[in-house]
Amino acid sequence: MTPEQFNPKDYLPQGYYPWPDLINPNIAQMEIDMNNWIDYDYAYLSEQARKKYKKMGLHLCTARMVPKASYEQTIPCSRFVLNFVVMDDQMEFATVEEKKRDCERGIEILKGAEPTPDENGMFQHLALIRNEYKSFMPSEWLERFTENLYRCFRYGVQDETPFKLARRVPALEYFMILREYSVNMYPYLYWADIEAGFVLPKDIEEHPVIQRLRALTSRIEAWQNDFYSLRKELGLDTELMNLILVLQKGQKMSLKEAVMEAKRIHDADVAEFVALHENLPNFGIYQQQVYDYVMSLGIILQGLNTHYIKDTERYLAGGAGFAWPEQRVANEYKK
Score class of each variant (00 low, 15 high):
residue 3 P to L: 13
residue 5 Q to D: 14
residue 5 Q to C: 01
residue 8 P to M: 14
residue 14 Q to A: 12
residue 15 G to H: 06
residue 18 P to T: 06
residue 20 P to C: 13
residue 25 P to A: 09
residue 27 I to T: 15
residue 27 I to R: 14
residue 27 I to P: 00
residue 32 I to K: 13
residue 37 W to A: 02
residue 37 W to R: 12
residue 37 W to I: 09
residue 38 I to E: 12
residue 41 D to N: 14
residue 44 Y to N: 07
residue 47 E to D: 09
residue 49 A to R: 08
residue 50 R to Y: 00
residue 51 K to Q: 14
residue 51 K to N: 15
residue 51 K to A: 13
residue 53 Y to H: 09
residue 54 K to N: 02
residue 56 M to E: 06
residue 60 L to A: 09
residue 66 V to T: 14
residue 67 P to R: 03
residue 69 A to M: 05
residue 70 S to L: 04
residue 72 E to Q: 14
residue 73 Q to S: 14
residue 74 T to Q: 11
residue 77 C to N: 07
residue 79 R to V: 01
residue 81 V to Q: 11
residue 82 L to D: 01
residue 83 N to T: 12
residue 86 V to R: 02
residue 88 D to M: 04
residue 91 M to Q: 12
residue 95 T to H: 15
residue 96 V to Q: 10
residue 99 K to C: 04
residue 100 K to E: 15
residue 105 R to K: 14
residue 107 I to Q: 05
residue 111 K to V: 01
residue 116 T to E: 15
residue 117 P to D: 10
residue 117 P to W: 12
residue 121 G to S: 06
residue 121 G to L: 08
residue 125 H to S: 15
residue 128 L to G: 01
residue 129 I to L: 13
residue 131 N to D: 14
residue 132 E to M: 04
residue 136 F to D: 05
residue 138 P to A: 11
residue 140 E to Y: 05
residue 140 E to S: 12
residue 146 T to I: 03
residue 147 E to L: 13
residue 148 N to Q: 11
residue 149 L to M: 14
residue 152 C to V: 10
residue 155 Y to N: 15
residue 163 F to N: 03
residue 165 L to T: 10
residue 169 V to R: 02
residue 172 L to Y: 13
residue 172 L to K: 12
residue 176 M to R: 13
residue 178 L to V: 12
residue 179 R to S: 08
residue 181 Y to A: 12
residue 182 S to Q: 01
residue 185 M to L: 03
residue 186 Y to N: 11
residue 187 P to C: 12
residue 187 P to K: 09
residue 188 Y to E: 02
residue 190 Y to G: 02
residue 192 A to N: 10
residue 192 A to D: 01
residue 193 D to C: 11
residue 203 D to L: 02
residue 207 H to C: 06
residue 210 I to W: 05
residue 213 L to I: 12
residue 214 R to M: 13
residue 215 A to V: 01
residue 216 L to Q: 02
residue 216 L to H: 07
residue 217 T to D: 01
residue 220 I to T: 14
residue 220 I to V: 15
residue 222 A to Q: 06
residue 223 W to N: 11
residue 224 Q to P: 00
residue 225 N to C: 03
residue 227 F to R: 10
residue 227 F to C: 10
residue 231 R to D: 04
residue 234 L to H: 00
residue 236 L to F: 03
residue 241 M to D: 03
residue 244 I to T: 10
residue 245 L to M: 11
residue 246 V to D: 06
residue 247 L to M: 09
residue 248 Q to V: 04
residue 251 Q to K: 15
residue 256 K to F: 02
residue 259 V to Q: 08
residue 260 M to R: 13
residue 260 M to C: 02
residue 261 E to P: 01
residue 261 E to D: 14
residue 264 R to K: 15
residue 265 I to T: 06
residue 265 I to E: 11
residue 266 H to Y: 15
residue 267 D to T: 15
residue 272 E to C: 08
residue 273 F to E: 06
residue 274 V to N: 10
residue 276 L to R: 08
residue 276 L to Q: 02
residue 276 L to C: 07
residue 280 L to G: 08
residue 281 P to K: 10
residue 282 N to W: 04
residue 283 F to I: 05
residue 284 G to D: 05
residue 285 I to T: 11
residue 288 Q to P: 00
residue 288 Q to K: 13
residue 290 V to Y: 04
residue 292 D to H: 13
residue 293 Y to T: 05
residue 296 S to F: 05
residue 300 I to D: 03
residue 301 L to K: 07
residue 307 H to D: 06
residue 309 I to L: 12
residue 312 T to K: 10
residue 314 R to C: 09
residue 314 R to F: 07
residue 315 Y to P: 05
residue 319 G to R: 08
residue 323 A to S: 15
residue 326 E to W: 09
residue 327 Q to G: 07
residue 329 V to K: 09
residue 331 N to C: 01
